[in-house]
Deep mutational scan, measured.
Amino acid sequence: KEMRNAYWEIALLPNLNNQQKRAFIRSLYDDPSQSANLLAEAKKLNDAQA
């Protein structure tokens, strides 16, 4: 469930391009235990690109 939530949050971040989203989501599938960390990194990048 945590992975699914992280997937959708990443997919809906407005300032990431599709390539960036795909990279984060690929990492999510590679290591679901890192969901919270990956989401935090994606949000950080999203904010930096705002």
Rank of each mutant, 00 (worst) to 15 (best):
F24I: 11
N46T: 01
D31W: 06
K1Q: 06
F24Y: 07
S35W: 07
A36P: 08
L38N: 02
L39W: 03
Q19T: 10
A36F: 05
A23Y: 10
L45D: 02
N17M: 04
W8T: 13
A40E: 07
S27R: 11
Q49G: 06
R26G: 12
N5F: 11
I25Q: 13
Q49F: 05
L13G: 00
Y7D: 02
A23D: 14
M3D: 08
Y29E: 11
E41F: 05
L38V: 08
A36W: 07
A23T: 13
E41V: 09
A50M: 10
L12S: 13
L16T: 00
N15G: 06
A48P: 02
I25P: 01
L16S: 00
L39T: 05
M3E: 11
Y7F: 14
A11C: 09
Y7L: 10
K1G: 08
Q34N: 10
L39R: 05
A50P: 06
Q20K: 02
K21A: 01
N18C: 15
Y7R: 13
A23V: 07
N46K: 01
M3R: 12
L16G: 00
A11Q: 15
S33A: 11
L12E: 13
S33F: 05
L38D: 00
N46M: 01
K21P: 00
D30T: 09
N46C: 02
A42D: 00
R4H: 15
I10H: 00
S27L: 14
D31E: 09
E2V: 06
A40V: 08
N46D: 05
A50D: 11
P32C: 04
S27F: 08
A23L: 08
R22N: 15
N15Y: 11
Q20H: 02
F24C: 04
P32R: 03
A40Y: 06
Y29L: 13
E9D: 05
L38T: 05
P14Q: 08
L12V: 06
A40R: 08
W8Q: 14
L16C: 00
D47L: 08
N18R: 10
L12T: 12
I10M: 03
L39M: 09
S33M: 09
Q34D: 07
K21V: 02
N15S: 07
R22G: 15
L12D: 09
D47W: 06
W8S: 08
K1V: 11
E9N: 04
A50I: 13
L16H: 00
N5E: 11
S33G: 10
K21I: 04
N15Q: 04
N46Y: 01
Q34I: 05
E2R: 10
S27M: 07
A40L: 11
L38C: 03
Y29H: 13
R22F: 08
A11K: 15
W8F: 14
A50Y: 05
D30K: 05
I25Y: 14
R22D: 15
A11D: 04
P14A: 07
K21H: 01
L13C: 02
K44Q: 07
N18M: 11
K21C: 03
A40C: 06
A42V: 02
R26A: 13
